[in-house]
Structures are given as C-alpha cells and as structure tokens.
Lab assay of single mutants.
Amino acid sequence: TDVTFHVNGRNLHLKGADEELLRRIEELIRRGADIEELEKAVKEWEK
C-alpha cells in the first residue's frame, strides 16, 4: 500500500506499507507524535 500522511505541514510518504505499519503510524499520530517519531517508526519497520 502506498499512502501519504500529512503531519504538521510535512508529508510522510510510505511505499509498500503493510497493515501493521499503518496501524502503528495512526496510533502515533493519535498520541500527537511529531514527524521525526513517525520517520523513526518507519525506519524500524523497514529493517
């Protein structure tokens, strides 16, 4: 799945995201995470 999140005026584009990653990103956004936290979560998922 390709999806782009718009967070605090910045874009986080995910290519090939699975349901697990999407749920994790949505949860972080609900908690008020900043873009750096979201990018870190994506990097951890990519490993």
Rank of each mutant, 00 (worst) to 15 (best):
T1F: 15
T1Q: 12
T1Y: 15
T1R: 15
T1N: 10
D2G: 05
D2R: 03
D2T: 08
D2M: 05
D2Y: 08
D2C: 15
V3K: 11
V3N: 03
V3D: 04
V3M: 09
V3S: 02
V3G: 03
V3R: 10
T4N: 07
T4A: 04
T4K: 04
T4I: 15
F5E: 05
F5M: 07
F5L: 14
F5G: 05
F5R: 05
H6E: 13
H6C: 15
H6P: 12
H6Y: 11
H6N: 10
V7I: 09
V7Q: 03
V7N: 02
V7M: 03
V7T: 02
N8C: 12
N8H: 06
G9I: 02
G9M: 02
G9S: 02
G9E: 03
G9Q: 02
G9C: 04
G9P: 00
G9V: 02
R10S: 12
R10K: 13
R10N: 09
R10D: 06
R10M: 13
R10L: 09
N11D: 14
N11E: 15
N11I: 15
N11C: 15
N11V: 15
L12H: 00
L12K: 00
L12W: 14
H13K: 08
H13S: 08
H13D: 03
H13P: 01
L14N: 00
L14Q: 00
L14W: 01
L14M: 04
L14C: 01
K15Q: 06
K15D: 03
K15T: 07
K15H: 09
K15L: 05
K15M: 06
K15E: 04
G16W: 06
G16P: 01
G16K: 08
G16E: 04
A17T: 04
A17R: 02
A17Y: 06
A17F: 05
A17M: 03
A17E: 02
A17C: 13
D18S: 15
D18E: 07
D18C: 06
D18F: 02
E19Q: 13
E19P: 15
E19T: 13
E20N: 14
E20V: 13
E20H: 12
E20R: 13
L21G: 01
L21P: 00
L21T: 08
L22W: 03
L22T: 05
L22H: 03
L22Y: 05
L22F: 05
R23A: 09
R23Y: 11
R23W: 11
R23D: 05
R24M: 11
R24P: 00
R24K: 08
R24N: 07
R24G: 05
R24E: 07
R24W: 14
R24C: 06
I25T: 01
I25S: 00
I25P: 00
I25Y: 00
I25M: 07
E26L: 15
E26W: 15
E26R: 15
E26V: 15
E26T: 14
E26P: 03
E26Y: 15
E27H: 12
E27G: 12
E27P: 02
E27N: 12
E27Y: 15
L28Q: 04
L28H: 03
I29Q: 01
I29L: 07
R30D: 07
R30P: 01
R30W: 11
R30Q: 09
R31W: 12
R31T: 07
G32P: 01
G32F: 04
G32D: 03
G32I: 02
G32A: 03
G32N: 05
A33G: 04
A33K: 10
A33D: 04
A33F: 13
A33C: 11
D34N: 08
D34I: 07
D34L: 07
D34W: 06
D34E: 11
D34G: 09
I35C: 02
I35K: 01
I35W: 11
I35R: 01
I35D: 02
E36M: 06
E36W: 09
E36D: 11
E36K: 05
E37V: 10
E37H: 08
E37C: 07
E37S: 08
E37W: 06
L38P: 00
L38M: 07
L38W: 01
L38Y: 01
L38I: 06
L38R: 00
L38D: 00
L38C: 10
E39W: 13
E39C: 08
E39H: 07
E39Q: 08
E39Y: 13
E39A: 06
K40R: 12
A41H: 11
A41G: 03
A41E: 13
V42N: 01
K43Y: 14
K43S: 12
K43M: 11
K43G: 09
K43T: 09
K43L: 12
E44L: 14
E44C: 11
E44M: 12
E44S: 11
E44V: 12
W45H: 10
W45N: 05
W45I: 03
W45G: 04
W45P: 02
E46Q: 13
E46S: 14
E46Y: 15
E46A: 14
E46M: 13
E46R: 14
E46F: 13
K47A: 11
K47P: 10
K47D: 10
K47R: 13
